[in-house]
Design a protein around this nucleic acid. Structure first.
Lengths: 157, 157
DNA sequence: GCTGAAAATACTAATAC
DNA sequence: GTATTAGTATTTTCAGC
């Protein structure tokens, strides 16, 4: 898979605002509507565009607490990883799961309404699987956040 | 601002797939098209729906390295925070900026193509602002990730 | 690969109930 | 809140260059 400047520009527009009509995208990238539409279609089929979603305001909905949970595994085995993943999948507040290099094995991004809800999550997690260690880092403020990928750096380089 | 079950259901559908037509959403929440459309419209105006975006596959585009950068501030002042935020805003690979409780002051989520690009980012950051400490945690694997908020927990509780 | 135009679908707004 | 309507915009397909 390879992307030319036009592809990257199309993707960059859509990852910032997916409501822009194809006609205007075509205009901005210097293409007519049909070929522009076909490129977008291709990107959807090949999975480069994974989804089109609405982003909600966590504060407005009352989900104002973000916590990063650093976890150490009891055993470094495929089986333990599978079980761990299975457990966190059943826990509603878990948004992201990363496997890490270094001291900690995993990091979870957890979103809850308040500290009480986080405590329930904490008890749920520790009840369902044994962990070597668990270290919670609380976010006081989300200063910036974006789902868009840095395509600009690719176009320049 | 208060949301009933219907509002939450509408938002939950849209945050997973924003391409679902209003007619089908109305169907699923047990409303006719007009009031359903008006609710969505209201949520867009009040900012509950912040944006509709396309989510791209980082691997497919060659942005396969995610790094979490933990930063300690040199000074705990409003001015230093503003300067720090200003600097990271100019650095392309920075996706998220969180202010943290505890030992580290900030965490950045950084997305780059490879280690060489991360090294460039590292040099850029440290050249533009003085930090007390900087600790990079590399993600070996993104096991799960979602932009959707856990609304199910709210509907149950 | 491109252009242009037609068809199908969805959105938006207004109506009366 | 529902049902219906109509006008507009967008998406999607189908020709031909």
């Amino acid at each position: 898979m390879t992307f030319d400047r036009i592809d990257l520009k199309i993707l960059d527009i859509l990852q910032h605002d997916a409501t822009v009509p194809v006609a205007r995208i075509a205009d901005q990238v210097g293409l007519s509507q049909t070929p522009c539409w076909k490129r977008i279609q291709k990107h959807e089929e090949t999975g480069v565009i994974r989804a089109r979603v609405a982003l909600l305001d966590p504060q407005a909905i009352g989900l104002s607490l973000t916590v990063f949970v650093m976890v150490e595994a009891v055993a470094h085995t495929t089986q333990w990883r599978a079980e761990f993943l299975c457990v966190v999948d059943t826990l509603g507040p878990v948004r992201d799961v990363y496997r890490l290099a270094g001291g900690h094995d995993f990091m979870l991004r957890v979103v809850v309404p308040d500290m009480a809800a986080f405590d329930r999550f904490y008890k749920d997690l520790t009840a369902r699987i044994r962990l070597r260690s668990m270290n919670s880092v609380f976010a006081l403020e989300t200063m910036r956040t974006t789902t868009a990928l840095p395509l600009g750096d690719l176009m320049a380089g």
